[in-house]
Design a protein around this nucleic acid. Structure first.
Lengths: 248, 248
DNA sequence: CGTCTCTTTGACTCCGTTCAAGCTCCGTGG
DNA sequence: CCACGGAGCTTGAACGGAGTCAAAGAGACG
């Protein structure tokens, strides 16, 4: 129960926007004045389904969600993890029908923002439109890294790369602590994001632990040997476009 | 030497925009009036390199290019194929430094558009900005499919899926013919896009041929059994957001 | 006609999967 | 307070899809 309780539901979103470009007072106020409906969901719920045509956007206020695709025989591919401040289905604002599903991984609280209000916001404030567009470009950069990891990195490198990415993303919105950050997903969820089986994820995690690179237990990831993990993953944070501001 | 010779270098780009949303005469004219510098490159050239900070955007007028990432030991992952009408580095307009490289696959002719002119265009015509934003969202949808293919589809399904995607993309800009389309890339290029080795791509292609699904030779792909290929790939074209207009 | 790039083939290897079982932790109810 | 149950984690053994290595064909082009 962190600070989200005491602050505006959209505060982490504002923070994320400001990490992309400065906001004027009017812009910040316009965002905070968006008419939202906050609601809480339990873990492992489907929020939006492939093919849906939503009339609202979902903003993650707290908790973890993911975008995923299902194909035959129960195969699932997670294509993105979403944390506080993300708008996973911003796409639906421009493209009516969902081409992937959105689900909660943990319990999440979301803010629903009507498409109309968002459209109005970006017409009145082109600067905000630019920030959101830029955000979708950063997400595209993340997709490229995932593609590269899936196609050409070993499973060890892939997992190391993902951990670096998640840690920095969480840190950028003030959700990391020292060398650690929450990672409230099962090894099976990780496997579905990595294109591996949970058995193999487990084995690689053990090797990372035994080499003293990380520790992971109780939904908490600690990257004990950051430099070494960065090195084996060949991790270059440029694509995340985070100006590393101080941790709150 | 098709019609690109006789028409404006940006005509396929205009066409692509119009396949996303209607353009007013003023908007179309504004695009065609962009100050461009057309230039021709030979095959297998690096156009932009990971880390570069270009001051122009490249628009593909003719030929094939690709975005890719290089990692250690010469490993290459192609993350996107680009054809006539695409602006592969639109991202550089909003995010200064490239997080991937851009190279020619075949000989290509490109149009260089200064960032300033493009920025001016989208400020004066928010409708064009919306189209370009939407285009980056469609590209993100393509990335998701590639991630799903890499992570959870068999190599056979993956290749079938890619062929469906490429065929429809080419058809949408009038570059397909009947059940066929150009595919002027080597099996090695395909392998680097599919996350496989060229040896294995070769074997899968042979199986597809022997099953009568496709033929591929002389840089020309023919999908002889479209329905069957769609079925095995579980291909759903929604993510491409193409309103299937008549082939020119 | 020779060279260079691309495709094809075969034999062997290995990374990651599959299947199956046991273990650990934790919340719940008797 | 402890027994129970279930989800998630861990382990082992056997398997298989795709990689590796190496060499031989096929085209394309000058």
């Amino acid at each position: 129960m962190p600070s989200a309780f005491h602050s505006h539901p959209l505060s982490r979103f504002v923070r994320k926007c400001e990490s992309i470009a400065p906001l004027s007072d009017a812009e910040r106020q316009a965002i905070l004045n968006l008419p939202i409906k906050v609601s809480a969901l339990s873990a492992r719920q489907v929020i939006l389904c492939d093919g849906d045509t939503p009339t609202h956007c979902y903003l993650i206020v707290e908790g973890w969600a993911c975008s995923y695709k299902m194909i035959s025989e129960g195969r699932r591919q997670i294509v993105a993890f979403h944390i506080a401040g993300d708008i996973p289905d911003l796409r639906s604002l421009h493209i009516g029908t969902m081409d992937r599903s959105l689900g909660s991984l943990t319990g999440v609280t979301v803010a629903l923002i009507p498409h109309d209000s968002l459209r109005d916001l970006i017409v009145r404030y082109p600067g905000i439109a630019a920030i959101l567009w830029r955000d979708t470009l950063v997400d595209a950069g993340i997709f490229c890294e995932w593609i590269t990891s899936l196609g050409r990195r070993t499973s060890f490198e892939h997992i190391a790369h993902l951990f670096c990415e998640l840690y920095l993303k969480l840190r950028a919105v003030g959700l990391a602590n020292g060398h650690g950050c929450p990672l409230p997903v099962t090894q099976n969820d990780l496997a579905d994001a990595l294109g591996l089986t949970s058995v193999h994820v487990n084995r690689v995690l053990q090797e990372m632990r035994s080499r003293g690179l990380i520790s992971l237990s109780g939904r908490q990831l600690v990257i004990s040997a950051w430099d070494e993990v960065v090195r084996v993953a060949e991790f270059d944070p440029t694509y995340l476009q985070l100006e590393m501001r101080a941790v709150e």
